[in-house]
Design a protein around this nucleic acid. Structure first.
Lengths: 340, 340
DNA sequence: CAGATCAACAAAAACGTTTTTGGGAATGGG
DNA sequence: CCCATTCCCAAAAACGTTTTTGTTGATCTG
């Protein structure tokens, strides 16, 4: 059982060829007759040979390891999907992920990156757990890197972020199509791309329908349930209250639910709500279920790995790309036609 | 800048010693005078030498990589804390984590483990995202492994799981101390350790106080908000309704909140609630805040890595340990004295 | 048919460390 | 003063691959 992992030389001996030939057979390199190539392969299979990646990486300069550095994997629920998408895409490329977490501490981050470099990762995914603008740490200057849920002003780096404006437009389109004209926006107050993008989407969607932007229907608060509740209560207390609310995220939406309850408004009969995050534990648990736009965590993870792979192969279209990923609407029960 | 990463031989040349001496100086091995050891170290520092882990692992058989295989990193919110704890502990040991995800597919899992082995990980953390009994995959037979949030019947493996019974006792103690005597239990229906452990803790806590176990106060439902709401409604409709509810988890607790609302009971004035999970997005967002027992994800992650390190060093107390980790109570506002 | 080309493989070097083995100078014992 | 230790350190081998360079016999070319 523990018969000392077979190496390339055992395979060579068993197949009656040189180690060179074995290496070439398995990697597809060199010039060998198809006959020997196949024979060697099947012998290797039979001995159930598995390469030592340390050794092969040492010589070939390809470790098949992708570094994954993120700021905080823990505090954003479901952001694990980013990691999942990346990991599955990597596995498909015969690569494996080495993860490092900075906890928002640049010292820790630098140490983590240094560790990745010592292990000779082929490239690095530099990820944030929510969309933000970043400056690339100096330690990453020598190694292929793609940004995930993060953007920078550098055009020589690939990056992927959610299409914030598009997400807002999708949400708004859903409300508009249901017939709503007076739609409030419970916005966020932080200075992050999502704040600007979602508000822009809100305004654009209104403009497209020829609906005037009404500042009194727009709030900005912290992205938490309490502040969301307060903001929603203010809008619902208006004389001509909105018939629908578009919320910056699900936590604020939960606050909106509470505010609706306090105001004795029934969702979606008296008030429709749509939000962004599709944070399932919340969205599914709310009564009625919260219709929400999903952030494409999994897809961004996949994309980042695939982009990195393309750049590492640098055969063809390896020109860096900065893309915005579309965000799908997840229907539940919080949207209906406007009252009356 | 990109001056071709300096290796041990450049350091040797610069310090006027052999590569052997450099290696020994940095690793603390061999017998060298403290003088040269220090001198070499400072030269290495000056050149800002960093080892090539591929090369050192190849020869030394120590890659300093720990494999982390989990069933589903994405679907359980906040379980990323497990990864965080493990990663931070690993970093402290100069190790790095290589993660692989099985998505509950044993084929995928085997392939992932195989990849880890090819990369010559020193050991593996075999993690589940919620406490369950597992059978170790055959692929892990040759390599040091510790189980995380998972238990098996093998005594030669270290493992760490939450102390389910203790968690329940802590929750119950909190309610009992507040004066409650008639405490309902909204249990879970799945056949998992948490189901048995938490119910046992509930019963034990009652027994300790000489309170008879009343079957009519105990329910079992799916761990979701809807079923939790239904179960809670049944208990709250009892003639002699409970003054407090202990919930299997936060989702069920959220259902209990909804049921309380439907029954026009105010929390905590009319009904106290305590639960398990401390799923912050929910617990903080509920009104009033939900007092809940936290599962020690971060701590289990740390412990697993530290245990693995101890077993790898096998100098001293490397005897496998199976431990249950205590679960702390996180106070919020959902518990008060019983009414009247 | 001589020389050039090519196909198919093997030998050897290389990757950057760690480990093993070797060896000279200082120290100690008799 | 000579031999045996001990203390430092260096030379060389080793880790398991990949890459570079060689080698042989066959095929082609003019």
């Amino acid at each position: 059982m523990m018969s000392k992992r077979v190496g390339i030389r055992e395979v060579a001996a068993a197949a009656g060829v040189s180690v060179t030939t074995v290496s070439h057979s398995l990697s597809g390199g060199g010039q060998l007759s198809d006959a020997t190539r196949e024979r060697v392969k099947s012998v290797a299979e039979g001995l159930n040979y598995a390469p030592n990646r340390l050794a092969s990486g040492l010589r070939s300069k390809r470790s098949q390891i992708i570094g994954f550095v993120s700021d905080e994997i823990s505090t954003t629920p479901y952001a694990g999907n980013v990691l999942l998408g990346a990991q599955e895409a990597a596995a498909a490329n015969d690569q494996v992920l080495m993860v490092v977490n900075s906890n928002r501490n640049s010292k820790v981050e630098d140490r983590g990156i240094e560790a990745l470099l010592q292990h000779r990762v082929d490239g690095i995914i530099y990820a944030r757990m929510y969309h933000q603008a970043v400056e690339l740490p100096a330690a990453l200057s020598g190694i292929p890197t793609v940004l995930l849920d993060a953007s920078s002003d550098r055009t020589d780096l690939s990056s992927v972020v959610p299409d914030e404006e598009g997400a807002a437009r999708t949400a708004m389109a859903h409300l508009l199509q249901a017939g709503h004209r007076r739609i409030g926006y419970l916005g966020n107050i932080d200075d992050i791309p999502a704040t600007r993008g979602r508000l822009a989407g809100y305004r654009a969607a209104l403009a497209e329908q020829g609906i005037a932007y009404d500042e009194s229907l727009v709030t900005a608060s912290e992205s938490m349930t309490g502040p969301g509740r307060d903001a929603a209560s203010r809008l619902l207390a208006l004389a001509d209250r909105p018939t629908a609310l578009f919320c910056f995220n699900d936590r604020i939406a939960m606050g909106a639910y509470q505010a609706a309850h306090l105001a004795s408004l029934e969702i979606p009969r008296d008030l429709s709500i749509v939000s962004i995050d599709n944070f399932e534990v919340l969205a599914d648990a709310l009564l009625p279920g919260l219709t929400s736009i999903a952030l494409p965590h999994y897809e961004m993870g996949r994309w980042a790995i695939e982009r990195l792979a393309a750049e590492l192969a640098d055969d063809a279209d390896s020109a860096p790309q900065q893309i915005q990923m579309p965000c799908p609407l997840v229907l539940r029960q919080s949207v209906g036609p406007p009252p009356r």
